[in-house]
Amino acid sequence: MRPARALIDLAALRSNYLLARELGGGKALAVVKADAYGHGAVRCAQALQDIADGFAVAAIEEALELRAAGIGAPILLLEGFFEASELPLIAEHDLWTAVGSPWQVEALAAFASPQPLTVWLKLDSGMHRLGLDVAGFRAAYARLQALPQVGSVVLMTHLARADELDSGRTAEQVATFAEATAGLDGQTSVCNSPALLGWPQVRSDWVRPGLMLYGANPLPQDSTLTSRLQPVMNLRSKVIAERWIEAGEPVGYGARFVAPRRTRVGVVAMGYADGYPQFAPNGTPVIIDGQAGETIGRVSMDMLTVDLTDHPEATIGSEVELWGGQALSLSELAPRCNVSAYQLPCALKRVAREYIGGQTQ
C-alpha cells in the first residue's frame, strides 16, 4: 500500500473546539464543511458530538452525510438551500438553514413545513457575497417572524477581513450589523476564527470556528491565544527510492534544483495530486526520521524529493513528515508556498487518514 497518510488527532480537535467556545463566551458551531477542511467530516463530528453545540456545513449533501452517520446535533446550512425542493429534506432532518436572498424568503413562505424551522438570517455587512442589505434584512426579518413555518430567527453576518488586525473594515461591519439588528429579537452570530482570536471586542451569541478547529492560526502573527491551538493533522509518507548524484546534476522537472555537491536524493511518495503544494520551494523544511531535513526539486504529481546527504541512517522506508507533528504547521508552510493555510488540508486527497486520540466509531 502507498505509504502516504494523514494522522488526525481527535483530542487536539476537541481542545481547539473548547478553546473557541471559551473565547466566544456562548455557543459554538463547529464548521465541518468541505469534509472538515480535509480532516474527515464524519469522524470529526463524531469526536465532537458530546461537547459541540452544533455543526455547520456548506450544503445539504454534507448535512445528510452527518445525519446518516448518526449525528443528531443541530446542523446549519451556511449557504442555505439552493432550490426550494430541498426544504422538505431540511424539515425532515431537522436542519437549520441560512437565508440571505429574497427568493429564499419567498420559498419559505410558500413551504408548508410540518414543523417550525430555525432560520439564520444573513446580513451583507460588507462582504458583498451572500446576504441582504440593511433594509432588505429588516424587511425579511419581519416577514419571517410572521410565518408559522419559522420557529426562530438567528441574526448573522460574516466578516471579510478579520484576519487583518490593522484593518478598519471589521469595525465597520460590526457597526453595520448593530444598525441592522437594532431592536430585533434573536440571537446573533458574527465571529469566525480570526475574530475569536484577534478581535476580543467583537462577540456574538453563536460563534462559528472553522480553521482554528484544525489547529491552524488564521492570523498573520502568533499570539498567546494562537499558541493554545493544537495541530490536528500530521501529513506523512516514506522514502521509496534513493540515489547519489554528482555536483552539477539536476533533480526533477525543470531542473529547478541543481546539486551544489555530491548529493543523496530521497524520493518520497507524496505529490501535488495528494495535496502537497506543487510549488513548495527548494529547502522547504520537512522531518526525516525525526531529524530536520528539506525538499529539493519541483514537487511532481506523485512524488517529491528530499536531500538525504546529511541523513546517513535514512534509507528506503524512512518516514518523512510534511506538515504537522514535528514538521511545519499549516500556518508556517502555507506562506512559503504562496497558498493559504485553508487550502492545504482542503486539497488533500488520495491519502489514507488514521485517527488517534479519541473515539473514532
Score class of each variant (00 low, 15 high):
residue 71 I to E: 09
residue 72 G to I: 04
residue 73 A to T: 06
residue 73 A to M: 05
residue 74 P to S: 08
residue 75 I to W: 03
residue 78 L to C: 05
residue 78 L to T: 05
residue 79 E to V: 02
residue 80 G to S: 10
residue 81 F to T: 05
residue 82 F to V: 08
residue 83 E to W: 07
residue 84 A to M: 04
residue 84 A to Q: 12
residue 85 S to A: 14
residue 85 S to R: 14
residue 87 L to A: 10
residue 87 L to I: 10
residue 89 L to Y: 06
residue 89 L to N: 03
residue 90 I to E: 00
residue 90 I to Y: 00
residue 91 A to C: 14
residue 91 A to Q: 08
residue 92 E to K: 13
residue 93 H to M: 07
residue 94 D to W: 03
residue 94 D to N: 15
residue 95 L to V: 06
residue 96 W to R: 03
residue 96 W to M: 07
residue 96 W to Q: 07
residue 97 T to A: 14
residue 98 A to I: 03
residue 99 V to N: 09
residue 99 V to A: 12
residue 99 V to W: 08
residue 100 G to W: 04
residue 101 S to P: 00
residue 103 W to F: 02
residue 104 Q to L: 08
residue 105 V to L: 08
residue 107 A to V: 02
residue 110 A to E: 14
residue 111 F to G: 00
residue 113 S to H: 09
residue 114 P to F: 05
residue 114 P to M: 04
residue 116 P to D: 09
residue 116 P to Y: 11
residue 118 T to C: 08
residue 119 V to L: 00
residue 119 V to W: 00
residue 120 W to C: 12
residue 121 L to V: 06
residue 122 K to M: 14
residue 124 D to H: 07
residue 125 S to D: 14
residue 126 G to R: 13
residue 126 G to A: 13
residue 126 G to H: 13
residue 126 G to W: 12
residue 128 H to G: 01
residue 128 H to E: 06
residue 131 G to V: 10
residue 133 D to Y: 07
residue 134 V to L: 13
residue 134 V to P: 00
residue 135 A to E: 15
residue 136 G to E: 06
residue 136 G to I: 09
residue 137 F to Y: 12
residue 137 F to K: 05
residue 137 F to P: 00
residue 140 A to L: 02
residue 141 Y to F: 15
residue 141 Y to V: 07
residue 142 A to N: 13
residue 143 R to I: 13
residue 144 L to N: 01
residue 145 Q to Y: 01
residue 146 A to M: 07
residue 148 P to M: 06
residue 149 Q to V: 08
residue 153 V to N: 07
residue 154 V to S: 04
residue 154 V to I: 15
residue 155 L to W: 11
residue 156 M to C: 11
residue 156 M to V: 05
residue 156 M to I: 05
residue 157 T to M: 12
residue 157 T to S: 15
residue 158 H to T: 10
residue 163 D to M: 12
residue 163 D to A: 15
residue 164 E to S: 02
residue 167 S to Q: 09
residue 167 S to D: 14
residue 167 S to H: 10
residue 167 S to V: 10
residue 169 R to G: 12
residue 169 R to T: 11
residue 171 A to D: 13
residue 171 A to N: 01
residue 171 A to R: 11
residue 172 E to A: 15
residue 173 Q to W: 06
residue 176 T to L: 05
residue 178 A to F: 06
residue 181 T to M: 04
residue 182 A to S: 11
residue 183 G to C: 10
residue 183 G to I: 09
residue 185 D to W: 03
residue 187 Q to D: 13
residue 188 T to G: 05
residue 188 T to F: 09
residue 188 T to E: 08
residue 190 V to R: 02
residue 190 V to N: 02
residue 192 N to S: 14
residue 192 N to G: 14
residue 193 S to Y: 03
residue 194 P to R: 04
residue 195 A to V: 01
residue 195 A to M: 03
residue 195 A to S: 15
